[in-house]
Design a protein around this nucleic acid. Structure first.
Length: 683
DNA sequence: ACCCTATTGATTTTT
DNA sequence: TCAATAGGGT
């Protein structure tokens, strides 16, 4: 078994790194712990927590103090809690949960900060009115005319929103009353911005008045972690604004700083590279205040700048915001064969150069191919046989977009019909969350409904399903064996080959039975107002096509019919994808979604473009040698691509292949320097 | 020929 | 939301 032998020397060296870290903890020297991909960062984090508990736990308990551990995601919170085991001394959570917990009791201060945010926003709007070309037409009106205009805008509020999404021509017709102001309707998108800004400003002003008069509902700021939108005029704030307020309150109140420092003398932050600059600034303030008042306080940042793939994260800027930190680097790799380690070292090309901790670390393979898009399948198949891929030794294939992942995972029709729906044409960025979230509570309303139907069907078809997973206790309470048999036989007679025929069968069962238990089970799954086929379709139509116009009715109905007529076998694939239970030997992911994971065999499908950026990977390979000649903007771009390439390549334990779908002849050097000889894949 | 506006199509991920 | 492109007017 390769990757199993560690020499005494390496064991000692690895141990020394951890000891080094513990020394920093014991002497309260705040530290950055840099550790590349696969080096055991989470292990080090857990060991640090254990060290603090063992060595300083007694003291903490006596002073009623706690350790704070911040993770980037809820999934990571769960993992840390699981690996650490229960401890009263450690608070593990995401930054948002922790900050809200710390500041939510300071209601008055928060409202004060909120009011000043509203004032700032009003100022921003007013500044834009002066400086932004969008508002020129409005600005050229006389003072009196402006007053008159505002009055008209108020009167037409309902009409404005009713026709907001109309085509320009229709919109102009609907709001023709504004035509008395010359040129105002000439550019519809500018007009919309003007009116929206006016409404926004009025809302904010109104809110400030309510706050000042201490009106009910305006005495506290509301944060709801499942609703990420600012509605400042309703006292509601988004995730980002929460962090902003957290920073404001920490900056403004020294007493709060001291309370945090004294109550939580150890703060450990996981994945620091993805953490917002606002949070780092909060930590800096705490750090500096602790020095000022000479109280013991320790902060540690665990992470890796090369794995910063979200632009909102602090990345390399950590050290320029929070200065005077000690640094501990871990340069062993515990994940991959040396062949892979060598490649990922070249990609990151910085002061972190990993080597495998294992003696028996050779035997992996890396290769870079170019090929036609049409031969992607053949490329994958070639490696299925070459690497002996089967259900136990899977192949993981990485694509840039969810669209491609959906297609290769076998549910392109479902993805296509949803992306075609009116709602997702408008809220394009909502599609992937609504349709593909592994956390089913985040699925959109319709995807969630379809998911429940498939879950219901799946459980019925699986003979190992426990009764309690289909029937809730209050349903099977008081039932005898004969009742149960007949109920199950009723349920099992529901069938269909497409979603349409299956739902039809469910609904017929519902209306055709007098059994209340059966009705209850079906309504728990479907949760409709109207249990008819028309009712079901209208429900879909209503949610997938809000504010539907008569002339678009036919196309909408057709798209919904198409969605429902997709075979159940395709829906099953989608269902398994959501549950992360693909039983196929090949599993498809987006590059981004593989963060933190590791796979034996990895194929990365790559091309020039990504999203709006047409020159993405080609730009990186072409320019990675000439960084000195690039603008700051280009350097940021190079770093972004580099990090994404680093994250995706470092997922591989043993075998790594890249298939590049565009012509690479103009940037071969940039590729060969990392991956060696460029091979050509011909079917 | 040029300028301005309307329409269209497209990334990833977290809280 | 944003950039690229299509379209319309002068």
């Amino acid at each position: 078994m390769p990757l199993s032998i560690i020499s005494d020397k390496n064991k000692r060296k690895e141990h020394e790194v951890l000891e080094d870290l513990c020394t920093k903890i014991d002497s309260n020297k705040s530290t950055i712990f840099n550790s590349g991909a696969g080096s055991g960062k989470t292990y080090a984090l857990i060991e640090s927590l254990k060290h603090i508990i063992n060595k300083h736990g007694k003291r903490l308990k006596e002073h009623n103090q706690k350790i704070i551990c911040i993770t980037y995601t809820n999934v990571a919170t769960k993992e840390v809690k699981g690996r650490l085991g229960h401890s009263d001394l450690v608070l593990v959570s995401t930054i948002h949960e922790r900050i809200w917990d710390l500041i939510k009791t300071h209601k008055k201060e928060l409202v004060k900060i909120h009011k000043s945010k509203l004032e700032d926003e009003i100022q921003n709007i007013e500044n834009a009115f002066v400086s932004d070309d969008v508002y020129t037409v409005y600005n050229s009106l006389s003072k009196d005319k402006k007053v008159e205009f505002l009055k008209l805008a108020d009167d037409k509020k309902d009409l404005f929103y009713l026709h907001y999404s109309d085509k320009s021509k229709d919109f102009k017709e609907a709001l023709v009353d504004f035509d008395v102001y010359p040129n105002i309707l000439k550019n519809v998108s500018n007009f919309k911005k003007i009116i929206s800004s006016i409404y926004k400003k009025e809302n904010y002003q109104h809110c400030i008045e309510k706050i000042d008069s201490l009106s009910e509902d305006y005495t506290e700021v509301i944060y709801n972690s499942s609703y990420n939108r600012d509605q400042l005029h309703r006292m509601r704030i988004s995730h980002d604004t929460l962090l902003e307020y957290g920073l404001s309150i920490i900056e403004g109140y020294d007493l709060l700083k001291q309370i945090v420092i004294d109550k939580y003398p150890y703060i450990l932050i996981d994945e620091y590279q993805d953490t917002s600059e606002l949070v780092i600034t909060v930590m800096k303030h705490l750090f500096e205040h602790s020095k000022k008042i000479k109280h013991d306080f320790f902060i540690a940042y665990y992470g890796d700048t090369a794995q910063n793939i979200y632009s909102s994260g602090v990345g390399r800027n950590l050290t320029s915001i929070h200065k005077d930190l000690e640094i501990v680097d871990k340069e062993f790799n515990r994940r991959s064969y040396q062949e892979v380690v060598t490649v990922i070292n070249t990609i990151r090309n910085d002061n972190i150069t990993q080597s495998s901790i294992f003696e028996d670390c050779t035997g992996g393979s890396v290769a870079f191919y170019t090929g036609q898009r049409e031969s992607t399948d053949k490329f994958i198949n070639k490696h299925i046989s070459e690497w002996g891929i089967n259900a136990q030794n899977k192949l993981h294939c990485l694509f840039l977009t969810n669209k491609a992942v959906a297609a290769y995972s076998g549910f392109s029709n479902i993805y296509g019909k949803f992306s075609n729906a009116g709602y997702y044409r408008k809220y394009f960025d909502q599609l992937n969350t609504d349709l593909l979230s592994e956390d089913t509570s985040k699925l959109g309303e319709i995807p969630n409904l379809l998911f429940r139907i498939l879950d219901f069907r799946d459980k019925l078809n699986n003979q190992y399903t426990q009764i309690s997973h289909i029937l809730s206790p209050n349903i099977y309470k008081g039932m005898n064996v004969s009742d149960l048999r007949s109920l199950l036989s009723d349920l099992n007679s529901i069938n269909g080959t497409s979603l349409f025929t299956y739902v039809d069968s469910m609904l017929k069962k519902y209306s055709g039975t007098k059994c209340n238990r059966l009705k209850e089970i079906l309504s728990a799954t479907l949760d409709l107002k109207d249990y008819s086929l028309i009712g079901f379709k209208n429900h879909l139509l209503f949610l997938l096509y809000p504010n539907l116009k008569d002339e678009d009715q036919n196309a909408a109905v057709e798209n919904i019919d198409n969605l429902l007529n997709i075979e159940l076998s395709e829906y099953e694939k989608w269902h398994r994808f959501i549950l992360n239970q693909q039983n196929d030997k090949v599993v498809y992911h987006t590059y981004h979604s593989t963060k933190g994971r590791e796979f034996n065999n990895v194929i990365i499908i790559m091309e020039n473009a990504f999203g709006r950026t047409r020159a993405y990977f080609d730009f990186f390979f072409l320019n990675r040698h000439t960084l000195g000649e690039l603008s700051d903007n280009d350097l940021t771009k190079i770093e972004e691509v580099k990090n994404l390439l680093y994250v995706s390549c470092s997922r591989a334990i043993k075998n790594l292949r890249v298939l590049y779908l565009d012509d690479v002849s103009t940037f071969t050097e940039g590729i060969e320097n990392i991956f060696g000889e460029i091979k050509i894949f011909k079917n």
